[in-house]
Simulated assay, not measured.
Amino acid sequence: MHDLWDLTLSDVAQLVFTHLLEAGEANRRLLSERTGLSFPSVTLGLSELAASSIVTELRREQGARGRATIVYGVSDEAGWVLGVDIGSTQVSFTARCLNGRLLAHESVKHRENAAVVGRLAGELVAASRVLAGLQKAPLVVALAVNQVVPRQLLRPDRPRPLALDITELFVATSKLPSSIPFLVENNVNCAAVAEHQDGLMRGYDDAAYMQIGVGIGLGFFADGALIRGGQGGSGELAQVPLSWSDAVPSEKDAIERRYGSVGLMRAASAIEAKGQPVSSPEELFLLAANGCGRAETLMHEHGVALGRIAAAAASILDPSVMVLGGGLTRNAAFAKIIVDEFQNRNQDTLVAISEKGSEATLLGACLLARDLAARRIAERFYKPLLAKPTLLPLT
C-alpha cells in the first residue's frame, strides 16, 4: 500500500493540507487567512507536507515589487484514486490524482446481467495500459453499483447482498491489491455527491438528486451530510407501492418498472415510426416533436407522473433544491413536463436539470474515493462527506 497510509502528520500540517485541498491552490497568505495560523506556522506545515511529497510548489507570481509569491498545490506524488461505475448498460472508470488531475478514463457498454458485470469492470481496469504504467497502487477505489449498498456488506443475520458479489468479482479480476480500501456506494448517491460538491446542489445543505433513467432513485443531503439510512437503503423510490389498494397488487420495483425508461418503452410498444415499433425514448420524443398525437399523449402522461413522484419525495425531504438527472431528463421537452408538474405542486423547492450528463456517477465515485484518502491524511481537521462509508471487508 502507498506509504501515505503510514504517515502521521502534525496538527499544523493536517490543517494546512485540508485547506489547500479545498482551495486547489494557494499562497501562504491565503492559507494563513483560512487556517488562522501564523505565517511561520503555515511555512512549517508546508515544509512537512513537501517533505512527504504531498504538497508542491506550482509556480511563482511576481508582483510589482518585492519577492515573488509562491503558489502551492497538492502534488501528483500525493497519490491517486480510482472511481468505477458498474452500471446496468455500461462500465467505466476514472483515475485521478488527489489534486484532481485526470490520469485515465475508459468505458465500455455491455448487455450482461448484474451477476457478472463486476467481472467486466474488473477486466476493463486490468487491461488498462495507463493504470498498469503507474508506479503505485491507488490510495482508494470507490465502486458505484446500481444496487442497494448495506451499511455492512456482510452480516450473518441478513442475506448476502448482490453489491458484495459485484464488488468481490471486481476485486478478483481487476488485479488491484486486495489490501487497498474498496469503498462501495449506490450509483445514485454517487451522482448526488457529484452534484453537491461540483454541481447544481453546491452550496445547499439540504438538497436532493433524483435520477430518472432505466431506474428511478434518489440521493439526498440533509444539513450538509449524505443520508444513507439505517440500512443503507435511503432514497429507494422504486420500493414505493404503485397501488395503495389491497385489491390491486403492486410488485417489487413497481414505480421503477412503470416509469423508468423500460416502462416508457413498454407503453410505447404499440406506436410505430415508419412501419416499425418505436425502439428508444429518443425516437418517441422525436415523434412527439413532429406532431404524433399518441407519442405526445404518452410523453405528457409519463412526464406528469414523474413530476408527481419528484414532488412527493420533496414533500417528505423538504430540500432547498432538487436536481433531476438521468437519461430521460436529457430531452428538454420531456424534462420541462416533469419540472412544470413539480412546480405546480411545490413552489418552495428550486428544481433544475442536471448539467453533468452520464458522467455524474463516476465523478461522485472519484470524489468519495478522494474523500476517504483525504480523511486519512488529515483525520483531525478534514470533514468527510461520509462519516461511515461502506468498505469491503478485508479477508
Results as ranks from 00 to 15, higher is better:
residue 2 H to K: 03
residue 3 D to R: 08
residue 4 L to Q: 14
residue 11 D to M: 10
residue 13 A to D: 13
residue 17 F to S: 00
residue 22 E to P: 08
residue 27 N to D: 15
residue 36 G to Y: 10
residue 36 G to F: 08
residue 36 G to V: 12
residue 38 S to W: 05
residue 39 F to K: 08
residue 41 S to E: 15
residue 49 L to F: 01
residue 50 A to R: 15
residue 53 S to F: 10
residue 56 T to W: 03
residue 59 R to T: 13
residue 62 Q to E: 13
residue 64 A to W: 10
residue 64 A to L: 13
residue 73 G to S: 15
residue 74 V to I: 14
residue 78 A to V: 11
residue 79 G to F: 00
residue 80 W to R: 04
residue 89 T to H: 14
residue 94 T to N: 12
residue 94 T to Y: 06
residue 95 A to T: 07
residue 100 G to W: 05
residue 103 L to E: 04
residue 104 A to R: 11
residue 104 A to M: 04
residue 105 H to M: 11
residue 109 K to G: 13
residue 113 N to C: 09
residue 116 V to N: 14
residue 117 V to A: 00
residue 130 V to S: 14
residue 132 A to T: 08
residue 136 K to F: 05
residue 136 K to V: 11
residue 139 L to F: 01
residue 146 N to D: 14
residue 152 Q to D: 09
residue 159 P to A: 11
residue 169 L to C: 12
residue 169 L to W: 01
residue 170 F to W: 04
residue 170 F to M: 01
residue 172 A to N: 07
residue 173 T to N: 13
residue 176 L to D: 01
residue 177 P to G: 01
residue 178 S to M: 02
residue 182 F to V: 12
residue 185 E to R: 02
residue 189 N to W: 01
residue 190 C to T: 09
residue 191 A to Q: 08
residue 196 H to R: 14
residue 201 M to V: 03
residue 207 A to K: 00
residue 209 Y to S: 03
residue 212 I to N: 04
residue 214 V to C: 09
residue 217 G to I: 05
residue 226 L to A: 12
residue 230 G to K: 01
residue 232 G to I: 00
residue 235 G to N: 04
residue 239 Q to I: 11
residue 241 P to H: 09
residue 248 V to C: 13
residue 250 S to V: 12
residue 251 E to I: 09
residue 254 A to H: 10
residue 254 A to C: 09
residue 258 R to C: 13
residue 258 R to Y: 09
residue 259 Y to K: 07
residue 261 S to F: 04
residue 261 S to I: 11
residue 265 M to A: 06
residue 268 A to D: 00
residue 280 S to M: 05
residue 280 S to N: 07
residue 281 P to L: 06
residue 281 P to D: 08
residue 283 E to H: 05
residue 283 E to V: 11
residue 284 L to S: 06
residue 285 F to L: 11
residue 294 R to N: 08
residue 296 E to Y: 03
residue 299 M to T: 15
residue 300 H to S: 11
residue 301 E to Y: 02
residue 305 A to F: 03
residue 306 L to W: 00
residue 310 A to H: 02
residue 313 A to N: 05
residue 313 A to S: 14
residue 317 L to F: 03
residue 320 S to H: 13
residue 330 R to E: 14
residue 343 Q to N: 12
residue 344 N to S: 13
residue 348 D to M: 07
residue 349 T to N: 03
residue 349 T to R: 00
residue 354 S to E: 04
residue 358 S to C: 03
residue 359 E to D: 15
residue 359 E to I: 07
residue 364 G to A: 09
residue 371 D to N: 12
residue 371 D to L: 01
residue 378 A to G: 01
residue 389 P to S: 06
residue 392 L to D: 01
residue 394 L to C: 06
residue 395 T to L: 12
